[in-house]
Each structure stands twice: as structure tokens, then as C-alpha cells.
Design a protein around this nucleic acid. Sequence first.
DNA 1: AATTATCTACGAACAATTTCGTATAATTTA
DNA 2: TAAATTATACGAAATTGTTCGTAGATAATT
Lengths: 125, 125
Amino acid sequence: MIKPTESELEILNILWAEGPSNVRSVNEIMNQQKEVGYTTTLKLMQIMTQKGLVERDESSRTHIYSAKIKAEDIQGEMLDKLLNSAFGGSASKLVLSALGSGKASAKELEEIKALIQKLEKDGNQ
Amino acid sequence: MIKPTESELEILNILWAEGPSNVRSVNEIMNQQKEVGYTTTLKLMQIMTQKGLVERDESSRTHIYSAKIKAEDIQGEMLDKLLNSAFGGSASKLVLSALGSGKASAKELEEIKALIQKLEKDGNQ
DNA sequence: AATTATCTACGAACAATTTCGTATAATTTA
DNA sequence: TAAATTATACGAAATTGTTCGTAGATAATT
């Protein structure tokens, strides 16, 4: 699978959140965080099309782009990379670090607990 | 805080694992994975010194480098970045993805469960 | 003491990524 | 319909990161 660069990932995130979009609206969302020229975003999205990261509907003048890869796939891959590059392969260290920062809500903690219980049950069979 | 590049992170990992080291030994460990010239590693470590990522003891001809930042700090920072760049800020999605890949042992799952319980308890007070 | 090995410093080539200017075409507005 | 706006395409500059060659100093070996 093709690995997106930093900027490409930003765009993918927008497409995942917003669904199929044109360059202008992607660029506007990008600009909420940092200033980026329109043609910069355009160029990136063109490159992403070439790489097969996004799909482009050219039926009208304003092209519509949509993410071609699933968020989960990239997430899993990047997580794996981080796991090995920064956490020495220890998933628990990573999880502990993630939970420790206090970013998960009570409901989310429940979800995680439920998954752990399931994993433990399956593991014992 | 300064964000290390890919290569710099590799070196930091070695320094975290091995403790204070000279360029040669870092380079040798690097070479176990991929071929890298000695001066390449040297240059990287010099740059890292400038950036303040490592500290250098110059008291003898062969300089000794040690990581200046804690593994936990970088880990937390990189995790945070990944969280926002690839998981839309949802810590639970990240954790679920990490646990789902089956990389955590039974003992690790217990650790995580214990932390969750602690978090839930603290949160209710 | 001369040769060889090992070390740092440093510039610069190379590569990947990001940014944007300019050209050109289509559409909308005045 | 002329002018202004809004698109895409594309080349190339700018930026960032990586790699390494060469020079010069110090230390070890013969």
C-alpha cells in the first residue's frame, strides 16, 4: 500500500470527514489551520490522484475528489509504524500513553474495556 | 519541543536502549538493519546536537552522545500527532485499533484494564 | 619516526516534499 | 459581449531531510 506524506494525510483526513469534495472546500478547511495557497492544495490532490490515494470525478468542470483508501487501513499502518519506531513494539506502552493523556471519555473507556474483555475471553479459548 | 525526523528517531531509539554511546557503535547498530555510511550517522548526530535532541561529551577525542529528551516525551508527542493527524483526535479509536491488531499480551491487557479502572475512579470524584 | 587507522568538521550533492507562479480554458457577472 | 472570477495543468523554485566525499587532526601501530 502507498504511504501518504504528511500533507497528503491532512487532505485524506478532510476527505474522510467531509466526504467527496472539490479542491476549493478542501483548501478552505486546510486554511483554518494554516495558510496554504489554492494551487498548492490543487497540486497535492493531483499528485494524490496519480498515486491512487484519491479518486477524481471529472464529469463537471469542478472536479470532485474522494478518498480511495479506507481510514482504518492507513490508521492501522501508521499506528504500526509508530509502535515500532517510537514505542519499541510495545502495544501496551502505546495504549497506556494514549489513555494516560486523559483524552478518552468515560464512554470511550467503557468501549475499550469491553474490547479487552472480549480479547481476554477469546484468548482463553 | 523539537520533533525528530525519521532517521533521528532511529538514533534516539538506539541511545535510549544502549545509553550514552559514540558514533561508531550507534552506526554499527544502525547497520544491522540497513547500510549507512559512518559519516552519515556522524552528521545526523551532529545535527541532533545542534537541535538539542542529544547531548555531547567532548572531553575525549571520541565524543559520547546521550539522548537529551525522554522517550516518554517524544512518544507522547508523536502519539498526539498521530491521534490528530490520522484518528481525528479520537483516542479510543486509536486504542481500539492498537489492541485490535492482537499485539498486546494477556498481562499487558491487565495493565491497561487497571489503568482504565483508575481513570474511571478518578473521573467520578 | 613513518604509516595506518580513527575521529570530527563541513560543504555540497541528492532526493523527497511542498509551495506557488503562470498559462489557459470555462463560467459567471456586470 | 467584455470583464472578472474560478477552474485545471504544469513546471520549477523553495524547503527539508539524507547521504557521503574530502580535509585535517589525533592516536595507534609498525
